[in-house]
């Protein structure tokens, strides 16, 4: 249906640019086919990152998190992450309705937290967004009813305190979006410096580029906000009102 449209459309552009309709020229520079020296250096830097450098990135992350109302907590192990989440559940009430419910990704890092057991004391359900267990409609309803969503992430960019989350089976987008509180659990070595590093990895790292961006990649930098009313900043617009990142620091 659209091919005729497309041809006409593109031809109009070619005419506007004074290019011949028949051929389409390749501009080698446009889609960088070779890795630049700068990119190579970036990938090397990431590969050879020392524990000390990683700790510095964590410090940068914590500093960047402050101004955007983002909570970052470093935890020695998964137990203390779990304890942190239990505290969050205890301290917060659901936004809609009385029942406290948590939605979580079926991800190894999350599953190893032992949340269902940890939260059973408070009589709080933990629901894993796993299609093997139930259908999409049911998962959707559970996520909508949850007030805390627990996810992992692919990376975290330290300079802007940004979580980078790609989309995969079982890793529902709505878990980091619909519940009022978003909890992300990451490991120290997932923290990278900035956008340059991220794009370098996505495009050039042999492992990472296999998956590339996936069909949806989201950057999340703190809780949702708006300043549309009298330019007054309000935290908590349509997305989550609170975001907590737990960073699991491997022992030295």
């Amino acid at each position: 249906m659209s091919t005729a449209n497309q041809e006409e459309f593109i031809n109009r552009i070619k005419m506007a640019l004074g290019k011949p309709i028949a051929t389409s020229q390749r501009d080698a520079d446009l889609f960088k086919s070779a890795m630049s020296a700068e990119t190579r250096a970036i990938l090397e830097r990431i590969k050879n990152r020392t524990p000390e450098e990683r700790k510095n990135l964590l410090a940068t992350l914590i500093e960047a998190a402050g101004p955007i109302n983002l909570e970052v907590k470093s935890c020695e192990d998964l137990n203390s992450v779990s304890a942190g989440i239990v505290d969050l559940v205890r301290a917060n009430d659901p936004e809609w309705g009385p029942k406290k419910s948590v939605a979580a990704w079926p991800h190894p890092l999350i599953e190893n937290l032992g949340l269902p057991a940890a939260l059973s004391q408070q009589d709080v359900n933990v629901f894993f967004t796993d299609l093997k267990e139930t259908d999409a409609e049911s998962i959707r309803r559970h996520v909508i009813d949850s007030y805390i969503g627990v996810t992992a992430a692919d990376f975290c960019m330290a300079d802007t305190a940004t979580l980078v989350m790609r989309t995969r089976a079982g890793q529902a987008r709505s878990v980091s979006l619909v519940p009022a509180i978003h909890v992300a659990v990451i490991e120290l070595n997932q923290i990278i410096a900035d956008l340059k590093e991220l794009y370098a990895l996505l495009k050039w790292d042999p492992q990472i580029k296999k998956e590339a961006l996936t069909n949806c990649m989201t950057f999340i930098s703190g809780p949702s906000k708006t300043a549309d009313i009298e330019a007054t900043m309000v935290h908590g617009a349509h997305g989550p009102r609170e975001v907590h990142i737990f960073v699991v620091t491997a022992p030295d």
């Binding site: 299609l131 995969r168 961006l213 069909n215 949806c216 989201t218 950057f219 930098s221 949702s224 997305g239």
Partner: peptide, 21 residues
């Protein structure tokens, strides 16, 4: 801002095994 709160790269509908989108 140094970074807006949300940036989404969207490249197609939900694929097999994905729950939403």
């Amino acid at each position: 801002q140094h970074m807006a709160t949300y940036v989404s790269y969207i490249g197609g509908p939900r694929s097999t095994g994905q729950i939403d989108g």
